[in-house]
Design a protein around this nucleic acid. Sequence first.
DNA 1: ATCATAGTTTGGAATGGTTCTAAATAGCAC
DNA 2: GTGCTATTTAGAACCATTCCAAACTATGAT
Lengths: 159, 159
Amino acid sequence: MSTATLPSATLPSDALAQRLADSGLRSTPQREVIYDVLLKKRDHPTADEVFARVKSELPTVSLATVYNCLETLVSCQLVRAVNFERGPTRYCPNLSPHAHFHDEQSGQTHDIELPPALLKKVHAVLPRGYDATSVEIIFRGKATRSSEQRAASSQPTRS
Amino acid sequence: MSTATLPSATLPSDALAQRLADSGLRSTPQREVIYDVLLKKRDHPTADEVFARVKSELPTVSLATVYNCLETLVSCQLVRAVNFERGPTRYCPNLSPHAHFHDEQSGQTHDIELPPALLKKVHAVLPRGYDATSVEIIFRGKATRSSEQRAASSQPTRS
DNA sequence: ATCATAGTTTGGAATGGTTCTAAATAGCAC
DNA sequence: GTGCTATTTAGAACCATTCCAAACTATGAT
């Protein structure tokens, strides 16, 4: 029903409901809110951070549910899980091929767009016999101008 | 002193003693055995696996020591720590720039040599303001011919 | 050699992120 | 509505890792 056959991949909730349905899963308030939270602030939050953000909307949500839902979203291909070193897993709703830059000063994570051509070259280093389904590229270092400054251009002193 | 000014970077124990000394650290039996264990079987073992291998030589070693020593080796730049997803950290004495291929069938990890030219291209995707000190490239997929077959039929493991 | 001192190792306790479990709840098909 | 299955929940369990305080070891000064 509703928007019918439109390829409405841009409407968060619909996209979610769609993808869930495709996997034979239900759309639930928890899943929707968690996905919205990821879309709203794309700062690669941890499960704990998502938990905190979701609680204001869904006060009785449990941490287990947050883990469950995030895992569900990952398995539906709506969200990517990223791991840095030993730190907690972070979640990111950016689906286009991208690398991650981990700023060691601020702890922040930035998406770095990856041109298809480069991706292809990267894959090309694999010898025969290696069949990769995915690549993860993680930079570590410092961002001399953080993405906030970049975006807002007038940030007061970072802690 | 002793072997004097020879750049004997190829002799495991000496290289170790040297690097440790450079950092003002002592060469200990535990550190030597642990480093040897990493050099002997380059299958990216976890701390637990290293622990098991070291025990046969140094039966009273403790797991904490294994963690300590591995961390020491990493900080001396003799060993690289690699993380896959949420799994335990794995250790690798291959210092040349390389990516990792994580075989999801066997759970094995293979080193993939990275040509400097590619590395440069990868770094080049970083916008101004991003200053990376390291890149980690991790492939995931299946290796149709395992590294054993590969190694048995060609290259010995040592660089 | 002897002692002091700093570097190391050790076992066990503690931590932190994540997963598991069993029971409660909610949504859909009939 | 009734029954069935998916989902959520709270809390326990888990596992890799780190922390801690005590025992040990090497080295340098005497």
